[in-house]
């Protein structure tokens, strides 16, 4: 029967005492397992959580926008080549003739 474990008069101390002698365990800080007294991990995790939360909100917002809205696609941006006369220059954004995709309405006398 191994008696290398001293019978401690103050049992509360023993857990801690034993831990200090266990040099191999890196978790042997001055508290119980997992406890991080400095609060650094908590801070880090809180930040990560906040970032994640914001990302989720952003994600939901993007979806909400593209499901409710598509508001930016007002009819004027979609007028066809041979649409009404006010279609000239209507489509939004790109300058006419720019890199091919945009064709201004060829209304008028041409046809």
């Amino acid at each position: 029967m191994p008696s290398d474990i001293p019978v401690d008069t103050d049992p509360a101390v023993r857990g801690r005492h034993r831990k200090h002698t266990r040099a191999s365990a890196p978790s042997a800080q001055d508290g119980p397992v997992f406890v991080d007294s400095s609060g650094r991990r908590a801070r880090l995790l809180r930040r990560a959580g906040a970032v994640l939360g914001v990302t989720c909100v952003g994600y939901a917002a993007v979806l909400a926008l593209s499901f409710m809205g598509g508001i930016s696609l007002s009819p004027s941006t979609l007028l066809p080549i041979d649409g009404m006369s006010d279609a000239r220059g209507g489509p939004g954004g790109g300058p006419p003739g720019d890199s091919g995709a945009y064709a201004p309405p060829s209304t008028g006398t041409g046809r």
Partner: peptide
């Protein structure tokens, strides 16, 4: 202006910035 772009893609419109990013 019409000849400047491909007449075979005349139905395409360049998307405006908002639409593009959305």
């Amino acid at each position: 202006a019409a000849s400047a772009s491909d007449p075979e893609q005349a139905a395409h419109r360049r998307a405006d910035a908002t639409t593009l990013w959305e």
